[in-house]
Design a binder for these strands. Structure first.
Lengths: 209, 209
DNA sequence: GGTGTGAGGTGACATTCGTCAGGGGACGGC
DNA sequence: GCCGTCCCCTGACGAATGTCACCTCACACC
């Protein structure tokens, strides 16, 4: 309304930083948030390792973080950010992701399947000091429970998804063949699967990978 | 070709229909396209099987179609649409998808990694009668070549990705165990893989699945 | 009519997998 | 100090997998 530059006005606006590897989606989200008068997208980055520098440079109030990004994983990035509120914004409604996000101290978790208004709302609530987590996902997280896999079991299972034989995995992880088979067998048992492929699918679906 | 009323240049505005299963992305894309004065998003659907009815009801000039949608596959939907220009808009830059899209007669293929201006441009060019295909993807498509898998090999490989043993797959497809093993072996050979998991990954990455 | 290709099948074989029963060592908690 | 857990390894065994040779049948194409 006032055409005059008013610096106090700036403090009213919530400064948002967007991190998503898909240009089009990022720009589109910026356009969407730009429709809200009290929100301002002050920056956009496409890689995980660009988030921290951008935060220092732009001093946003809230960061919207995708999980799957080149350079650095969104959940890892979130764990290291300080002095800014973080909302995870991702395609994947995997219970394990939510848990990891909460452990990383994020203030919100919104899936890309949410309705348009929810995102702006989440930004406002989080900026006001609240926490916003997808309800269905929170419920699923409780029923799913904690990740039953040990660190090594996860490593081996993750390596198994890349394909290759037991010998390949063993070489990649500097283990003996038998050890790899044991970890795989153990993981298969814990996940109620019938072979490594099924186990990998199950673990991935729950965000335990 | 319908010889009915040709609506000369009634509309200067290009009518766009959006089909994407993720609410937030869809709304965001609508906001982005809404910024262009010559484009108008006249409708949005979230499922593949809602596209055809929406086209009849809303008569858009251009349809933006995601590939992975519940209800019906975007590529399949594209093949059945008539009287409207189709642009595939998807996350996946898989050569095989591009090929299938071209076979389905679509007018454009844009990946979600594209820059914001490219989408609006693509809509305009396509509406004007042109064709717009992602350059890098087109190149990859040429080098990748055609899908070497036979129909049955694809079926078996697809079933294999769901997990389960050979016997399970055989039961699901009403085949004998030996036949399933033969198809898998053949597919593994053609794809240069070393087991079914590697083969499935390779096929999926190229969009041959 | 011959030829090629894809679908579907059988039987045999070597290899790989998944399982089980052990054997260590390191570390943290009560 | 003992117990539990995770790490790492070995060896053995049966079941599942991947490969190969070879078979019929249908269909399209020249």
């Amino acid at each position: 309304m006032t055409g005059v530059t008013d610096m106090t006005d700036v403090t009213r606006v919530i400064r948002v930083l967007l991190a998503d590897d898909q240009h089009l989606v990022r720009e589109a989200l910026a356009a969407l948030l730009g429709l809200e008068p009290d929100l301002e997208v002050v920056g956009q980055v496409s890689r995980g390792d660009e988030v921290a520098p951008a935060v220092t440079a732009l001093r946003p109030d809230v960061v919207l973080l995708d999980i799957e990004m080149p350079g650095r994983d969104g959940l890892t990035v979130a764990g290291d950010l300080t002095g800014v509120r973080v909302i995870i914004l991702t395609t994947f409604g995997r219970p394990g992701y939510l848990r990891r996000a909460m452990d990383a101290g994020v203030a919100g978790y919104v899936v890309k399947d949410a309705r348009a208004g929810e995102l702006a709302d989440a930004v406002r609530r989080v900026h006001a000091g609240g926490r916003v987590f997808d309800r269905r996902l929170a419920a699923a997280s409780v029923s799913t429970g904690a990740n039953p896999l040990t660190g090594r079991e996860r490593d081996v299972l993750r390596a198994a998804t890349e394909g290759g034989t037991v010998a390949d995995i063993a070489r990649r992880l500097h283990l003996s063949d038998g050890t790899v088979r044991n970890y795989l067998s153990s993981a298969i048992g814990k996940l109620g699967a019938r072979n490594r492929a099924e186990a990998a699918r199950a673990a991935e679906a729950k965000g335990w990978l």
